[in-house]
Design a binder for these strands. Structure first.
Lengths: 191, 191
DNA sequence: GCCGTAGTGACAGTCGTTGACACTACATAT
DNA sequence: ATATGTAGTGTCAACGACTGTCACTACGGC
């Protein structure tokens, strides 16, 4: 009984989240996730490459939004500024997703296998940023360093934001970038 | 016939490298790796947590060397400087390992599952760096940003070094950090 | 020679993952 | 309405990754 495929994925995601919150990822089998979603285990693996992947649906959205945000930025901006502007552009989307993303983040943080997947996804995104900068004429070395640095700074801002959502992600983001400037400027400081 | 455990691990590593270079990681079974090393599959899993882990033995050494290098640096140095000095301290070790590390890097780069593990190991190392900085009195936010930034810059230096080993890793490292300074300084540039 | 520890082999079993084949819902063209 | 293509699905079978258990063996110290 094939409804829409998209709906099946949504039900699988919900089933996976529920089961993982109840028992933890490792104590749940792929067959159970499928069963709760009303499909076969085989069907699960047609929609997702492996048992973990269902929990990372949201990352795709982030990737697309980030790509779209980068499109609209003048190629004459300096590389790190480009990233900062793109990050600020997706802040509303990130803030809107917080409620849904939080339980997921909790499950991922508690499971080594999922943290591993998350690290791989981050690496992918950094690659994406570096490629976007290179496409704008930034040399390969600067693009890579800027992408890693920019992403790392965003990640830290998001971490603080999760602990203190009241201030707003944008404030945390600007604060983190200011911190970055100080840290790098200090590289040549004499005691 | 239990020789030393340590020797078994070494033989398993060599067997894994050989087989992966011949056929690629995915086309090799854990049982085959064990067999070529002269032990049982079950014994393999006593020494390594999973099929991938054997290929990341070297990372442990890197972690230890980095920890040791950080010990010897005055806590009054600014955070990013601390990391740069630590990185330069382990340059000889990295250069000495290049011959052994290269085929491994090739296998890892060609296999998504291994790239994933590599990303996780990187995240671990960044955590380690951040913790080291915090232990020296650096505030949590600066420590995290500096760790991610510093590691990212080292990673880029190592990438360039792999393409151009003649110049020496240390030269690439200093160059990358200079590049970082320019990129961050440019954040406020007006076109 | 005795003993504790670390390392090992041999099974058996669970779970993740994949290939092959046949079948069904839905959209669209006719 | 009927035909037909496409996407989604169920079933079955199999391979390989991993784990628990039990009994056995090398080796160092006593």
């Amino acid at each position: 009984m094939p409804r829409s495929g998209k709906e099946a994925r949504a039900r699988l995601l919900q089933a996976a989240i529920d089961l993982c919150l109840e028992r933890g990822f490792d104590a749940v089998t792929a067959a159970e996730i499928a069963e709760r979603a009303g499909v076969t285990e085989r069907t699960y693996f047609r929609h997702f490459a492996d048992k973990r992947e269902v929990l990372f649906e949201g990352e795709n959205q982030l990737r697309e939004q980030l790509t779209a945000a980068l499109e609209g930025i003048s190629a004459t901006e300096p590389p790190l500024k480009t990233l900062l502007v793109a990050f600020r552009a997706i802040v509303p989307m990130l803030e809107g997703n917080r409620a849904k993303a939080q339980p997921l983040a909790q499950v991922i943080a508690a499971t080594p296998a999922l943290r591993e997947r998350a690290a791989a996804k981050e690496a992918h995104l950094v690659d994406l940023l570096a490629r976007a900068l290179r496409d704008r004429g930034v040399d390969e070395e600067s693009a890579t360093i800027a992408a890693r640095t920019g992403w790392g700074t965003l990640a830290q801002a998001m971490r603080r934001w999760h602990l203190d959502p009241g201030a707003g992600l944008d404030a945390h983001l600007q604060r983190a970038f200011r911190q970055l400037q100080m840290i790098v400027a200090d590289l040549d400081r004499r005691d």
